[in-house]
Design a protein around this nucleic acid. Sequence first.
DNA 1: GATGATAGTCAACCGACCTGACTATACGAG
DNA 2: CTCGTATAGTCAGGTCGGTTGACTATCATC
Lengths: 147, 147
Amino acid sequence: MKKSAALNVSRTLMFAFRAQAAAVTARLAKRGYPDFPFAFANVLWLVDPEGTRSTALAARGGVTKQAMSQQVKLMEQRGYLQQTPDATDTRAKLVQLTELGKAVRQASEVIREELNKEAARALGVGSLRKLQADLETIIAVYDPGAK
Amino acid sequence: MKKSAALNVSRTLMFAFRAQAAAVTARLAKRGYPDFPFAFANVLWLVDPEGTRSTALAARGGVTKQAMSQQVKLMEQRGYLQQTPDATDTRAKLVQLTELGKAVRQASEVIREELNKEAARALGVGSLRKLQADLETIIAVYDPGAK
DNA sequence: GATGATAGTCAACCGACCTGACTATACGAG
DNA sequence: CTCGTATAGTCAGGTCGGTTGACTATCATC
């Protein structure tokens, strides 16, 4: 009757997340950006071209503004981001990608596509799309209040 | 043409993982085990009835033996686990669930089933199974060397 | 112009992991 | 039997990514 491996989405999800994060950092390293933590890549993906307030980044990233502001500071120190005052609000700063930041982001986009492609090769494009959609459904089910 | 939301399994995976972890801890709290971190639950699931060496737990959990041994120590302090010498090897200890540990594990099993059921309701059982299988495929693709 | 929301910072802390160095026991040659 | 190597586990110290709480400065509104 082979019930297939016990249904444990929890564990699988965790390992999938880890594997994926590890793959991204490994490949970034291979492309000339070693010591570029996965969390940095995450932030990179949240910044939009005109620049974004760190508060907004925090919201998008699902973390506190303090956490995000710390990451931003680190990434600024390392030259991936810069902050410029927001013309429309003296309190606010716009977080923007530096040239270096844009380069890493570019690389990370390529990597993401690579990974997508490899996943699609293993699963089929349809399945991959469905995977993402189903994950989103699950997020909604598990965490009705979240972003 | 609605390309549907950009294919970004990475992000989705992360949020799914977070949502799921949050759901588990929240429900454990609701069942009378507050302050029971998700990581504890993870360890709980790894221990088998006869007891398991912490090294083996580490391997199953995908972490170093030091990390696992620290978790085990914490959980022992809180009364969820106990360690007894392994008769077959003086160096080794067998990690076992205490009564309390068994109770929490029981609760966590129930919760896991709840979550599975809710996910299955939203997706259909077939999709849920496929989701898990596809995630496993992806793990294999992204992290060829891992467990 | 007082009042309350919002942008961001500072400081302290924590959880979960890591590496490196170590001790004690086990075990398979020789 | 003992010697070298492998294995079980600990200790110490550090890192990374996040948290909460308290605060300042600016904005927006009534």
